[in-house]
Design a binder for these strands. Structure first.
Lengths: 345, 345
DNA sequence: ATCAATTACTTAAACGTTTCAGTCAACGAT
DNA sequence: ATCGTTGACTGAAACGTTTAAGTAATTGAT
């Protein structure tokens, strides 16, 4: 497969392999004459030489490879991107990494596989982990000694860098917005609150906003399942079964909202006429939807960019110092909320 | 970084490094006693040894790595997944690859970068290329000598394996369906027809269906741009500007349809009341949309699975023999089409 | 004129595997 | 008693790089 090696180039240029290596790496410590440099480059060109990065990693102990671990929402489920959020994030990560000359080693994650090995044995320079992970797996990764960035995780361990958003504040903002529009009874719809720190924070923010307004969080207004379209449908069914008691809902992901809206519409319930919705993420879906979703916007592109940059910085740094990055949010007003007046009840 | 190597294991188990290697690879040619095997495994366990795959690739010339090249729709555009189709496909590819013990080396593609190098210098065992690619880049890749699978490309070169769908037939089916519903004037909305073989085929299928029904394809009914939500909006504007002359549209991608529907609705034009739509792909979006989209369903999961399997087969095979795989399509009826009667005109 | 420093290289050891080619004992067949 | 065979291993070269250490020639300062 690998036809032409550094030795072939060396022979062609009439120098040693190491000289070629120094030229190719623009080594700052070694001095190479302009003339030799030119000859080497010509030989590279002529032979169509491309360095073997595996060999390079082996020797130099850097791989220019970033491992990306993306959760598989369900064990047997094939599409880890049933939430477009992951696709958008991955895209941003890939793009940024490529700009810096890095490649991505992509892996979904399953319960039964050693998460660590996926990346460890390729000698990646860093790992970006998105979402919630089992603690033991994280510990295993920690021992590898490569920089690790946790995206949207509330693990508190200085060994990891983290990047996230103001989840609690965002949820508070969303809920307060609904209250401001006159809603007194607001549902909360999300993935698992217990198992997922993000959902937990958003739940807290939701509760805070209610309490600030003198309202009491109601157990019966909470819908907690999985973050996907299907659960949105389910939540809609449950909402109807429970007697449509809320006039608004704060939903922690746009895909969930999509399902919820659809499930309601199938029973003739309209958004925003019958119930208002604010959701979260602002994936491109949110704008495409009908009605377009009023939602808490997060800068997914920036999240991905930052994740890569944190890895690169940490890879440079001599000693580890924990970095934490929290991105701001803002509410985007669209068409899924309407003002609620006393007379509407 | 890499703490424990095969030598450490060898020392621990009291055998040579090669023995450890043979044990680990279950070498069929070498015989190892059960007792030794056990000792080695124990040592591996004890030391937490994980093989360095870079070293392995270097030595064995296989990498268990599959390169995946996904087009960046626009040069400066960050999100290569603006069409969820790519996300779903990638997900299927990743999942299947992982099941076979392979990892994915993911890269988007930009005009100015050598596509080839991305994968070549990592020693990937195969490359999956999705979408349309510049010919010179393909030729460069061809010379690498690794199996290459082209997904949704109409490049005819026996050096590449291909996997696609019955684009022409699918478009014909869609158009015929609309005609069957009484539509006599049908728009065609797609990405670039000239530069993209897939769109070309679908255009042909569209024309064929019209002609079969005794209708004449009309230049003024063709809308050709890029495959994304934004162009859907644009097409809607153009459609209205041109005087709403068609009662139906065949649109070659669900995202495009999303934009088109939205653009129309902003001007008070309703789907399917005022215009019927059949689109293509059946990404999960199609079902979420309002109205949910009648669309030509393709099995994206199967496409991804097949792509990986082709790579693996080709990697095994002694000599190259060209494989071509065409997946079937079917029309999924949803809510974006209504019957058109004479009296409606 | 001598010494140290600099420039422009080369040599060779490492990186962690795989795998070909042995080695050596034990074994059954002659 | 000798001769392949087989079974169970080991040694060492190879994969394609990087990089520390070394060398030899040139330069500049004294």
């Amino acid at each position: 497969m690998q036809r032409v090696s550094i030795k072939d180039v060396a022979k062609e240029a009439g120098v040693s392999a190491s000289t070629v290596s120094y030229v190719l790496n623009n080594s700052p410590t070694e001095s190479i004459s302009a003339e030799t440099r030119k000859r080497v480059m010509a030989a590279v060109q002529k032979l169509g030489y491309v360095p073997n990065l595996n060999a390079r990693s082996l020797s130099s102990r850097r791989s220019n490879l970033i491992g990306v671990l993306i959760p598989q929402t369900e064990p047997g489920k094939e599409f880890m991107f049933s939430n477009p959020f992951y696709g958008e994030l991955l895209s941003a990560i890939e793009y940024t990494a490529r700009q810096h000359g890095y490649h991505l080693l992509l892996s979904g994650t399953q319960e039964d596989q050693g998460y660590a090995n996926v990346a460890r044995n390729r000698g990646v320079d860093g790992i970006i982990i998105v979402g919630t992970y089992p603690g033991e797996s994280l510990n295993e990764l920690k021992r590898m000694g490569v920089p690790i960035v946790l995206v949207d995780s509330y693990v508190t361990d200085d060994a990891f860098h983290t990047i996230g958003i103001e989840d609690k504040e965002g949820a508070r903002m969303a809920t307060r917005y609904l209250i401001g529009k006159g809603h007194q009874s607001i549902a909360f719809i999300s993935g698992s609150i217990r198992e997922n720190g993000v959902n937990m924070k958003r739940y807290q923010g939701y509760c805070d906003a209610l309490r600030e307004a003198g309202l009491t969080p109601d157990e019966g207004a909470i819908y907690s399942g999985t973050v996907d379209y299907e659960y949105g449908l389910t939540a809609a069914r449950q909402y109807l079964d429970r007697g449509r008691r809320q006039t608004a809902a704060f939903i922690t992901a746009d895909v969930l909202s999509m399902g919820f809206v659809k499930g309601l519409r199938q029973q003739g319930v309209c958004v925003p006429e019958d119930i208002s919705i604010v959701s979260f993420d602002d994936v491109y879906l949110a704008n495409m939807a009908y009605p377009s979703l009023t939602t808490v916007h997060q800068d997914i592109g920036e999240k991905g960019r930052k994740a890569v940059e944190l890895i690169l910085e940490a890879a440079q740094a001599k000693e580890h110092r924990h970095t934490e990055c929290i991105l701001p949010l803002r509410l985007v007003e669209r068409d899924s909320v309407r003002e609620w007046r006393k007379s509407d009840d």
